[in-house]
Design a protein around this nucleic acid. Structure first.
Lengths: 406, 406
DNA sequence: GCTTATTGTTGTCACAGGCAACAAATACCC
DNA sequence: GGGTATTTGTTGCCTGTGACAACAATAAGC
């Protein structure tokens, strides 16, 4: 529950401690995103001296955050470089409360989902219930983890507007949550430090770090499930959050004069015009999962459905066009049923994007499906818990399992 | 013509030289934005030690970038702190080619316009003409400057899409420029290093550093003149440029199904719906300046004109609503005739903003007039030339006048 | 005039990264 | 298979930079 988006006080001076922390942090960040890297890669990427990298890596190894391994003799002249990997013993828990279920996952420091539990609920859980479910699932998972495992903390992805400073859900319409201090609740259940953020925002981070948007400095992410359209944006490598943390609500941008209304009461927004429920109705597929809907969309021959999809594609393209004009990103990543309709007729979407953005904005723009699918939100949520660790490897506590269960 | 937006390579390691440069840079940046500051303020803001600040300030003084002065005994216990000011001898030239004139100004390191020359042209100048006009004006201004003056370089603000890496104007529709290497042209005329950027972008920087947006980490700037609507955005304290530098074209975001077309051929965009020419026509004020139009707007009793203004306010509010939903900024700054109609009926605009954005986005949002007016673009353009100086005070050359005239 | 508070100055220190020299481990060439 | 070139890890030493402590300087309050 510390301040996560530490504001990057640009007027702060730097001293020697900062250097060390910064350099340790950069190595951890590279390993987090890149998995296993050779020491020589670290030297070339960071521009630091061999001896310095050696020193830093040794310190990280002593902290238990990384492991070194013999070089794999994979071509190249000269002595093989040692490989460095993020420790397999460090994990974080990801929590994702949704309308019909609460999901918890164990995610490793290298961004892999080790285990996953889904707890279905009849109706949307109240914050306390969700916290209790999450707590129980986490306690169950802890028992199954190897004893050497250490935990960075818990990251919670919530479909709503979050005050990330103290982990309070200000408003989550689909869950019917208002001013819910979910971080504190889960922290009380588990004894583990807990961070919360918007589900689309963390998914965007995941796709940027591990998925389609890998390496992009400017990336727009659009994600749609039963709860409308969420969005995330990376600008100059930094997640856009806004002054109060309520930014990048890309589903609620107004793109039309239409009187159709979205979940927040706004008319003519992207979310109002590109609605999953409309598609479900066209297919008479009430209560279907994203996968079922995806199959239906890709196979349909129904002219009415096709017309609806095309209309949605036109609207989606307009929304993407607006975002491209504003952000000029390298890539736009689509997830959920937005991806389904994109795959149905890519050219139509791209044509709409071109018609509603400047040439300079859509020239070279890549529109792409998300690689991570439903894993994105969990990997991204876990990233919230890893963030402090990566930012200050030597000054952040990692919890042992014994300590947790007490 | 170096790379300006140096991409802030986030994976770069830090060494001792970087520290020094960073700390020198931070002090220069604080002084650039803040004018005169006490040494004690520098220590508290940067968090650095007194002795370190002393050392850094001495170095900057030896570089001729700042001057120290005796403390003004203005209350407070204890020994008065020395005050530090950016050197009054360092200036940059700002160039702003427009449809009907090319303007050149001399701007001091503290952001003040020392001198200004406007050279009217019958039609929009070709790039070469504009470069020649700028060169002549600059040479004239150099003769009038005190001999001790030193020049950081030239910053050019152009209404169009700029490739800032090499200072080429990719497209400036209103000037009818295509692929114009304006930086190289002006550099050849003057012998001074020259940087180019979009006019709205640099104006945004100016308002953020010296005007209404002072201190805001997230700021949206909308600026409108005869050449349509331009925009600039600051996200987490960093200017939004996009992956290729063509971002923040806020005038061209599509907000309506209207078939009205803007200068780029896009329909239903902010620029298509909020048009200065429409206002001029309503007032029969063809060829009026912004000031004349402003007076007319504020005094009008013509119901037709009022209706038009209100319609424009509604559209502008919708555009601001979209931007607020996306960026969640602290402040939106309006300039040019956008400011004129805003002042005509502030409440109507704000109502429209509220109707087209989430509560969380417009709660606490400030919509404000620009403080700098027509000075913004010049101060901002000069900032382009100061940027390298501020980023690396000890490694950036400043040119003497004698060297320039040769 | 004394105390308290704040700031500038000076000399010393510690720490982190650079660097050079050497060792180790590979590929390539003959 | 041996020699060479190339790359990387390791070690010891060096240097630059900021922190720190002690002292001096300057102000306000009593």
């Amino acid at each position: 529950m510390k301040v996560l988006h530490s504001g990057a006080n640009s007027s702060a001076g730097q001293n020697r401690e900062n250097i060390r922390q910064h350099n340790l942090s950069i190595i951890m960040s590279l390993l987090y995103k890149g998995g296993t890297l050779a020491r020589s890669q670290l030297t070339s990427v960071t521009g630091l001296n061999r001896s310095t990298i050696s020193d830093l890596v040794v310190e990280l190894e002593e902290l238990g955050m990384i492991t070194q391994a013999e070089a794999v003799t994979s071509g190249g002249v000269g002595r093989p470089s040692l490989t460095v990997s993020p420790s397999a013993n460090i994990v974080a828990f990801a929590v994702n409360p949704e309308i019909d279920a609460t999901t918890v996952a164990v995610v490793s420091l290298s961004g892999e989902i080790i285990a996953k539990r889904r707890y279905p609920t009849q109706i949307q859980p109240a914050p306390k219930e969700a916290a209790k479910i999450a707590g129980e699932l986490i306690k169950g998972l802890i028992k199954e983890l190897p004893p050497k495992t250490r935990v960075a903390g818990i990251g919670v992805a919530v479909p709503g507007q979050i005050r990330i400073d103290d982990g309070v859900v200000r408003l989550a319409p689909h869950l019917n949550w208002v001013e819910a201090p979910i971080a504190a609740m889960i922290q009380q259940q588990t004894g583990l430090p807990t961070w919360v953020d918007n589900d689309a925002t963390v998914s965007c981070m995941a796709e940027r770090n591990f998925g389609s948007g890998r390496g992009a400095s400017h990336c727009v992410y659009l994600f749609a499930g039963s709860g409308g359209i969420g969005g995330g944006v990376v600008v100059s490598g930094v997640q856009l959050r806004g002054a109060s943390g309520y930014g990048s609500e890309l589903g609620h941008i107004k793109i039309s004069d239409s009187k159709k209304v979205d979940f927040s009461g706004l008319t003519g927004t992207l979310e109002a015009l590109v609605k999953r429920d409309d598609l479900l109705e066209a297919f008479k597929l009430f209560g279907a999962t994203d996968d079922e809907l995806d199959v239906e969309v890709s196979n349909t021959k129904d002219p009415k459905a096709i017309k609806l999809i095309n209309t949605q594609l036109d609207h989606l393209g307009r929304g993407i066009g607006v975002l491209a004009t504003i952000f000029n990103p390298q890539i736009v990543v689509l997830e959920g049923f937005l991806d389904s309709i994109f795959k149905f007729n890519k050219e139509r979407l791209l044509e709409s994007v071109r018609a509603s953005s400047l040439n300079s904005a859509h020239d070279g723009l890549v529109v792409s499906s998300g690689e991570l699918g439903t894993r994105a939100v969990l990997i991204g949520a876990a990233g919230l818990a890893f963030a402090p660790l990566i930012q200050d490897p030597s000054g952040t506590e990692i919890y042992k399992l014994t300590k947790v269960s007490s």
